[in-house]
């Protein structure tokens, strides 16, 4: 039988999550097969260390495995949840490694499974990923750097301002403008 390759990654995620909630280890294997590469690439980009990335990918999947009970398999979007968990693990690692001051914002607040219910259905369309990548590339270099520091290093605007040697107000203005520009570039690509 030929392997069948589907464009929509999220197909069947609801059923998969129900099996995960029943503690079916094979469901974890399937979850890894669907999202493992995506999670590994994100974490490796953030921490730039293969060994650390592997450990953090493992932490990510085990965290999801242990917290899947709070996930709404009918309404939840597992891909966005998984990437949020992965990003937070990588940011925790960067913060601990760089001795950065702990942010006043608790990252755990951003990865509660309930936050990933009823996301826009277009989120899984592969075109969206490409459009977002292109919209980021079209930003001017300072605005893009600020957005990337926020996403890939989990920096607050104050931390970004300090890193870039710019006044906080300037950084806020860049980021607000950049996000408006991205929304405009994406048009109706993301619709709730």
């Amino acid at each position: 039988m030929f392997p069948l390759i589907l464009a929509v990654v999220a197909k069947g995620d609801g059923e998969l999550m129900i099996r995960l909630q029943r503690r079916d280890p094979q469901a974890l294997a399937e979850l890894y097969d669907r999202y493992g590469q995506m999670v590994f690439r994100l974490i490796l980009r953030m921490v730039r260390d293969n060994g650390a990335a592997e450990d953090l990918v493992q932490e990510t999947f085990l965290r999801v495995w242990n917290r899947v009970g709070g996930f709404d398999s009918d309404r939840g979007a597992v891909g966005p949840w998984l990437l949020a968990v992965a990003r937070n693990r990588a940011i925790d690692y960067l913060r601990s490694k760089g001795h950065r001051t702990e942010s006043t914002i608790d990252l755990n607040e951003t990865e509660h499974p309930a936050l990933f219910a009823d996301l826009p259905t277009d989120v899984f369309h592969f075109d969206l990923v490409r459009q977002v990548k292109r919209a980021l590339e079209q930003l001017d270099s300072q605005a893009r750097e600020a957005i990337e520091l926020a996403y890939f290093e989990g920096m607050s605007q104050s931390e970004i301002a300090a890193r870039m040697g710019q006044p906080l107000g300037t950084v806020k203005t860049w980021m607000r403008r950049a996000l408006q520009q991205m929304r405009k570039a994406l048009g109706g690509a993301i619709t709730a």
Partner: peptide
């Protein structure tokens, strides 16, 4: 919408595939 955008940002990266043994380890 913002969470969808964040997902797309995170999924947009290129890079190598994870090592084969990682799956078994997890």
């Amino acid at each position: 919408e913002a969470r969808a955008l964040a997902f797309a940002m995170g999924a947009s990266g290129d890079g190598p595939a994870p090592p084969r043994q990682l799956r078994g380890r997890i």
